[in-house]
């Protein structure tokens, strides 16, 4: 069964947001921190890349579609940290 990320051929997403201007790698500083955090956690073996991808892909479809690219990353990271007991969701929620 395909998951929400498997959008190839799907209809209804509209025009491609073409922007040929040079864009910075990250639109905001928090995106850069999310990227770096993920790299460090992968390197530490807290989870591997396939587990990370899976955590993005099993996001609830509505949340997936509503989230920006790095919001999805952060959602996946916090899911995996919670599941592995490294950073329980309750601690992050404070």
């Amino acid at each position: 069964m395909s998951r929400i990320n498997d959008v190839g051929g799907m209809e209804g997403f509209g025009a491609v947001p073409v922007d040929n201007a040079e864009q910075p790698a990250f639109a905001a500083d928090w995106e850069a921190r999310v990227f770096a955090l993920n790299s460090a956690l992968l390197r530490r073996g807290v989870y591997n890349l396939d587990e990370f991808r899976d955590a993005v892909e099993r996001m609830p479809p509505a949340e997936y579609l509503d989230a920006s690219y790095y919001e999805r990353w952060f959602a996946a990271i916090t899911t995996l940290l919670d599941e592995r007991g490294v950073l329980p969701r309750a601690d992050l929620d404070g």
Binding site: R33, L37, I77, L92
Partner: peptide, 9 residues
Amino acid sequence: RVRRAETLL
């Protein structure tokens, strides 16, 4: 929230 996650980690 990202900052908080980083700080806790």
